[in-house]
Design a protein around this nucleic acid. Sequence first.
RNA 1: GCCCGGGUGGUGAAAUGGCAAACACGGCGGACUCAAAAUCCGCUGCCGGCAACGGCUUGUGGGUUCGAGUCCCACCCCGGGCACCA
Length: 843
Amino acid sequence: MDYRPQQIEEKWQRRWAEQHVNSLTDDELLTVERPFYNLMMFPYPSAEGLHVGNMYAFTGADIYGRWQRLKGEAVFEPIGFDAFGIHSENFALRTGTHPMELIPSNIRNFTRQLTRIGAMYDWNHVVDTTDPSYYRWTQWLFLQLYKAGLAEKKEAPVNWCPSCHTVLANEQVIGGACERCGTVVEQRFLSQWFFRITKYAQRLLDNLAWIDWSETTKKAQENWIGRSEGAEIWFAVDTDWDAPADSDAAEAVAAARAYHHERGEDEEYEQQLQIPVFTTRPDTIFGATFLVLAPEHPVVAWLTAPDRRSEVEAYRERAAAMDLVSRKKVEKEKTGVFTGAYAVNPATHERVPVWIADYVLMEYGTGAIMAVPGHDERDFEFATQFGLPIVRVISGGEDASEQEGGGMTAAWVGEGDLVNSGEFDGVHSLDAIGLVTAWLAEQDAAEARVNFRLHDWCISRQRYWGPPIPIIYCDACGTVPVPEDQLPVVLPHVENYKPDAGGVSPLARDESWYRVACPGCGGAARRETDVSDTFLDSAWYFLRYPSANRDDAPFDTEITRHWLPVNMYIGGEEHAVLHLLYARFITMALHDLGHVPFEEPFKRFRKHGLLIKEGSKMSKSRGNVVIPDRYIEEWGADTFRTYLMFLGPYQEGGDFRDQGLQGPFGFLSRLWDAVVPVEELGDAVPEGAVEQKLHATIAKVTEDIAALRYNTAIAAMMEYLNAVRENNRRVNRAEVEPLVVMVAPFAPHIAEELWELLGHGKSVFMGSNWPEHDPSKAVADTVEFVVQVNGRLRARMPMARGITEEAAKAAALADPNVAKHIDGAQLRKVVFVPDRLINLVAG
RNA sequence: GCCCGGGUGGUGAAAUGGCAAACACGGCGGACUCAAAAUCCGCUGCCGGCAACGGCUUGUGGGUUCGAGUCCCACCCCGGGCACCA
């Protein structure tokens, strides 16, 4: 009987479903012992169907879950659909199918594919983010954050995608372009809903020290959070003209006032206008020869000299019109204009000119810098271009020769001793950072400060396909949260859901929907018409899975305590700073609000690598995207799964080559051929080389799967099967039975079929069937010993395990080839590695 | 520029400082067959040699070590992320 994967796979998929092999009831969720929550990143259900990249991710995660189960854990392995979002909506717009029809049919197709690949999903606990019974709780989550002051609406510079007609979070802007459509984003000032993730910046960073995550992912988060230690230093403005007297005056002063008010500096501001700057190099303060403000800095209009106003205004307009990508180009020539104003360097008490330039960004630090051209490359370039003074305050680097004027030829950014720095001369720059900050602080001119690159998370979207933000605006009561007992705010079926270039949400076209009575006073009010970011849906879905059937709470307290945090989460590196950071933030916030007893959602996270095809990236335009269905049809899910895991190291990715499927298929076929004539199997216990190989293989496969080294685990099983079948020897049942179990996580269908043929009444996954190895039997009695002379291989000889150095040396010296290479020379040294090698150093 | 990966046969890839190339694909040769497919067996890094065996070989150049793909220093190349972040 030949191996016919399609029939076997159909049979077992049907049986798993009929006998509920892979799902837990809600009662079991509360009571089972050894719970193991095995999570993978839920897919966005595209119309194209599951991509091989999804299959790769899910298969690797499923293997881990199946293995835990074979070891006796009660594994909960759920799946769901991240079905809201711009991606689905854009596709719907393109094809003219309404997302409310498109998504359910995509989900049906995904469900079919996910079943066909043979993953052991718990179909009793599915999550669909577009289902009102789910997004009701997404809205609830928004309200909890709102009540805690962690959600706020504010006017801010935001990323605007002119193609998707919506704002984007910083994390969704990749290299200056929209993550979804690739269009270059613009900067706009809009009033948007933000989550105050920056409040958690330090904790998000600190916890990275102890969570068990892939190092690269932690590193990416660390960089994204971007902590910088330094100081904020205040420069008093010194001008001899009044604030602008024209019609812009009130506005300019109001803007400056608002800026300082937001920073809590009302008092200082009323006394004298000060410009705060952030620097990581307070040690270079004596070399700060000018200030540079971001063009959009709110105090610019206030302090610009009357005769400079038209030039400054022109520059600001040009900067505002520029897209963010070209503005942030490093290689671009420095531009800027002088405002005519001066400020006082608090260390030197010298007046320094105040400039504006687009290389200073409003969104980082204070939107203003002290320029130290002697020790900062960008400031050096700017000073050189505009003829501003360059002063050396740290020794090191090179100066031009006397004839050439002796000035600095480049910024010196390294360390050194301070010079031209008053009482600090001779102090090392690293020591000076703290000393100078303290000295300035005594004069109320500075304070030590930490800055983060991380920005607040902009969650409002001017789009249709998302959960409406549960807020109502009332003229009398102001901003009113929708009462929790009125959730969900159901997304209405809107025929024209096209986004609008003006930034008005599609929901704003449905008057009957947004006109609503104020929950506070009962008067006429209107709903918020923006929807929330898809990443909010996915920031808490893992909390919902075990409680997916609860309709009175987002997550059941007992079930959550039993199953969370997640034991193992496997997913793609592309979400390192998006989903994974948001999920951590939301969990931390829920912890602080008393909703969950832990603050990190995922105990372990492992990233998987990227699949490429025949040496190049898969993409639609290249036309080399692997369609999994075709391969599964041709080879079977077991072969496809095993090949995906065999083609390279899982955590690094690999190269998909059509020819490669032959290898795993041959392996499974040979396994089939070895086991299926069950009556012919011998009853002898394993012995000799096969026994040794069996125990060594169990040890290796167990270790490898634990470390996600699936490719070498499969190779080890292939080697073992080759040993079992060597020279047409008679195969014994006790030799193949453990192999069938070890194959099961990779190729579950064939394993089930063989397990049944071997006489077992129930699924191999019911019960702790993972084999144990006996370390004493995993090693051979004789080892092949390597003999080196002066570090070079000269002979190999079988020797008894545990042979002494003396005996090994004697045997080695007796070998004619060894003797020849020693050639009568004196032995200077003998290096002996037990059971492995002896190196005779002669001459 | 900074931060991660990575560079090994014809190909995908293995290798706690201790036999480089496991496992697999492909190729070559053979068995079976009228023939082909499937299957099975053998060979397969490069150079020299009938062979025994010897020499060379993990991006480049140095170093540490009895011994380096692996550790250290410098550099080149490829992939990914961040980036005028003060």
